[in-house]
Structures are given as C-alpha cells and as structure tokens.
Amino acid sequence: LTALPPSQSCAADTAYDADGLRQFLLARGTVPVIPNNPTRRRIHPFDRSVYKRRNLVERMFCRLKDWRRIATRYDKLARNFMAAVELAATIIWWV
C-alpha cells in the first residue's frame, strides 16, 4: 500500500482487522472501514453504510469471473486481456 497514493477510506474484510494496518492507514490520513474480528477485545467503530457498498465491487468481480477467459487469464498480452474485460463488462452492463 505504500506505493499507492493515500485515499479517503479503505474498505477491507474482517481478515485485515489488525492494529498495525489500522495505524498505517490512519497515519496516511485514510479512514479504515474494517469490521471487527469477533475475537477482538478492543472494538473499533466503522461506517456500516460505506462497508455495505464494498459488496457492489465484489459482486462486479464475481460477474466478471463468470467469463472463463477472464477468470483463467487466458490472454497473454495485457491489452488483449483488458479488451476482454471491457467487452465482458459492457455485455454485463447491457444485459
């Protein structure tokens, strides 16, 4: 994450609920939107509405992976792979 520019928020799954990651994100000025692990003793607040929007992105990737060519990374060249992703995304949006 250090190579990426800081963002406003970072939505992650419960598996990324670590104090080190939370401190790193807060030091960059990024608000962590990570639900608490059930075994956590110190509960951290998070915005549930922002976390629910993360599901939209996950569903989009799931729909793209329904296309075997994209899921298996069939194309060797990056431009051909990107063209296949764009074509699949267009068809998914259209249907």
Rank of each mutant, 00 (worst) to 15 (best):
A78Q: 05
V50D: 06
I34T: 07
N36Q: 11
R22K: 04
L77K: 13
R42V: 14
Q23D: 14
C62P: 15
P6H: 02
L1C: 10
M82P: 08
T72S: 10
F24D: 14
L4E: 05
R73G: 01
V50H: 02
A89H: 08
R79D: 05
D13K: 01
F61C: 02
T30F: 07
V57I: 14
D17M: 01
R63S: 10
N55K: 12
D66L: 02
N37T: 13
A78D: 02
F61E: 00
P45H: 04
D19I: 04
P6I: 05
L1R: 10
R41V: 09
E58S: 08
A15S: 04
W67P: 15
V33E: 10
G29M: 00
A71K: 04
R68W: 13
A78G: 01
Y16G: 03
V33G: 07
R54H: 11
N36H: 05
F24K: 14
S9P: 15
D75R: 00
C10H: 15
D19M: 00
T72R: 13
S7D: 08
A15D: 07
Q8C: 09
P45M: 01
W94V: 12
A11L: 09
A27G: 14
F46K: 10
R41S: 05
T90A: 09
K76Y: 00
V85D: 06
R22D: 13
R73Y: 04
P45N: 09
W93S: 11
T39W: 00
S49A: 06
Y74S: 01
R69A: 02
L56W: 02
I34Y: 12
M82E: 15
N55G: 10
R40A: 03
R28T: 13
D13V: 06
P38R: 07
N36G: 05
T2G: 11
D66P: 15
D19Y: 03
Q8L: 09
E86P: 10
Y51S: 02
W67I: 13
Y16M: 00
P38H: 05
A15W: 12
L1D: 07
